[in-house]
Design a protein around this nucleic acid. Structure first.
Lengths: 385, 385
DNA sequence: CTGAAAGCGCTAACAG
DNA sequence: CTGTTAGCGCTTTCAG
């Protein structure tokens, strides 16, 4: 309760406008006008001003300040104006931690990426950020760095941060999803993208992995290739199976035989492409086309092939999945199935926000994003198309 | 104060071990052993267990739980064990918001990047993450997307989050640093990297921009090039000046004349490289070497040059700054001055952590990271080197 | 229209 | 060794 600065009486006190932004009071007993003396608030350096500082500074209560700052209706316009000015004066910034603690939501989304450097994931992240910044959400980026233990720790961490939701793509050899179930049990909505766990009953956003492979293989067949080898990603990844499925489907659909020798997996390690290339080329019956799941593999293989004097695409064609705007500048330019990772990020984030906003039950729906076959010189043997 | 479950007496009560993980009590009045009935804690779904839940569950006080969880010494080992088990049982995760609110530090570092997709910044981010994950820090990534207003908002946002520090690289045309000063005034340590503001009195981490340009130009001169053009980044960027400085220094050092026509700036927009290339090539006295600050510009220009039948490097050599492992696979492979962005991220983060840890005054020291000239075919006219 | 007070989850100082 | 309590900054009843 406010007291008169002179007589300490608490009754005869009433507000009497503002003076230099500060609440002025009038005491009937003493018949004086006065303002409360400045608190130290304003001079405090190296520290964050709080709602309290603003309140003291003006001689009003913290709830009044809170109301002004949050644009509530039940507040005197003059008071509000003074508070807003004072807040600016003291360079007040709300403490989001306190706010979050109070209302049980943080406006933070946790994003777990296996590899920040990979252009694909970097683009997905950009897409996520696009939506986030529009919707006032913040992003905590966790880098699992393709390590299972790190991914598990990341989830624990995000749970501790009480994030409002999680967007994730798994490490290349994650085979267990208990850590994700943990988060879900706590009511944190999770959306998976690209590398997903089929067994989890949550939304998933993937690209047309079956169709992409199908289209690439179909294109190669159209170009006259008959011995098409494929270098997949890690065997544990669901996405590898999807892509293999498309490859097999296309071959079967066009009545081609399947040669198990032409199918290899990669663990995304240093010399993968070199080894795979040597393996392929030294087969008794070497392929006339190589389909790699990562475009960097194709690029590296093409480089080896060229220096070995192998004609591309005549003797050996190359196709891949692709995400980088520069792939068209390699020599020869690379045919890819483009997945539009930015829109994958945007879609995932939109779905997550929907769930948060409407408290939708997590529907396990899988969203398949359209991709596009982009034909370039690494596979173009006929001028027809 | 605990009461006997039967007689409500508060005196004759004492602990008597644990039973199925729960604190057991003995009441002298009633001569009975008992445990307090389960709170609802365990059955609560869709919610985060708190320290309170654990306390109730075991019938101990919250401070005891806190002590157990924080590995304090003054606690009975048996009690501690029971608490730890109960915490696991209830799937307790500490609430980092509450913790942060209490002790005034968040263990969050804010990172502001102008472009997440650019391989350079993606790598810097990876470097930052490397150190962060080792030091138990979390990263909030803000994407300014090359927009000044967004960068300013990002800072405000990070201030509100009470982050422990900020790592940032400015947008390409940021000319004012008041937003950064704001954060600094509040005692938030800020470290700038790559695109820095010289006027700010804080640590900066940059690559050898002067030396890089010098080395590239020197190399071109060694190769017999005499008319070296340069395509810089945005004019407002300090880094553009640094790189121009190196270019000019090399030319002067080797007694070459400087032709202002050979110096252009880029605003990193869609058709930049095409326009610049056409401009250069149509000069009365066109250059015999082009030095671009972004390797993507060189790649695109080389592509145009090749299709125009211009021989690289004989008629026109190319060099650039570079960050991507794939640049060696372009045809011809590109000579670059490599900046090692990952170590830039690591260094920046280490410096920031040092400041946080030792409350070092922000020394305005500029840390220049070593880069390395990597000579490839785009500029190699003589077999000598 | 404004103020007082409770509570979000946690830690630490202070008693016992 | 353990419990009580205050307080971090904020919002939100509930009273005036």
């Amino acid at each position: 309760m406010k007291k008169c600065i002179k007589c300490d009486h608490v009754d005869g006190l009433k507000r009497a406008g503002f003076i230099r932004g500060k609440q002025r009071y009038y005491c009937r007993h003493c018949a004086i006008h006065f303002v409360y003396p400045d608190s130290e608030a304003k001079t405090k350096k190296n520290t964050h001003a709080t709602i309290q500082d603003v309140a003291k500074y003006l001689g009003v209560s913290i709830s009044t300040v809170s109301r002004a700052l949050n644009d509530k209706t039940d507040i005197n316009l003059e008071t509000k104006k003074a508070i807003l000015e004072a807040a600016k004066e003291l360079d007040y910034h709300p403490n989001l931690l306190a706010k979050s603690l109070h209302d049980g939501k943080t406006n933070i989304i946790g994003v777990i990426l296996p590899d920040v450097v990979h252009p694909f994931f970097a683009r997905v992240l950009a897409g996520i950020q696009n939506i986030a910044s529009k919707s006032q959400y913040n992003i905590i980026v966790c880098h699992s760095d393709e390590k299972n233990e790190t991914e598990i720790k990341n989830i624990e961490n995000l749970i501790s941060f009480k994030v409002d939701g999680i967007l994730m793509s798994h490490t290349k050899n994650m085979i267990d999803s208990n850590h994700v179930k943990n988060a879900i049990k706590k009511g944190i909505p999770v959306v998976q993208f690209d590398r997903v766990f089929d067994e989890l009953d949550i939304p998933k956003v993937v690209s047309q992995d079956v169709k992409g492979s199908f289209d690439l293989v179909e294109h190669l067949l159209n170009q006259g290739c008959r011995k098409i080898a494929i270098m997949l990603g890690p065997k544990d990844l669901d996405i590898s199976n999807q892509r293999l499925k498309g490859y097999l489907a296309a071959l079967q659909h066009f009545g081609m035989e399947i040669n198990p020798e032409y199918i290899v997996y990669s663990d995304i390690s240093e010399n993968d492409s070199k080894e795979a290339f040597n393996y392929f080329i030294n087969l008794e019956n070497p392929p006339d086309a190589i389909f790699t799941v990562f475009y960097s593999h194709s690029i590296e293989m093409m480089s080896i092939a060229k220096s070995a004097g192998i004609k591309i695409p005549e003797a050996l064609a190359f196709v891949s999945y692709g995400d980088d705007s520069l792939v068209e500048f390699f020599e020869p330019s690379l045919t890819v199935f483009n997945q539009f990772p930015i829109s994958m990020g945007e879609t995932s984030m939109n779905i997550l926000l929907d769930i948060i906003k409407f408290k939708t039950e997590l529907s396990a729906k899988t969203h398949v994003l359209d991709g596009k076959l982009i034909i370039r010189n690494s596979s173009l043997r006929k001028s027809s198309n």
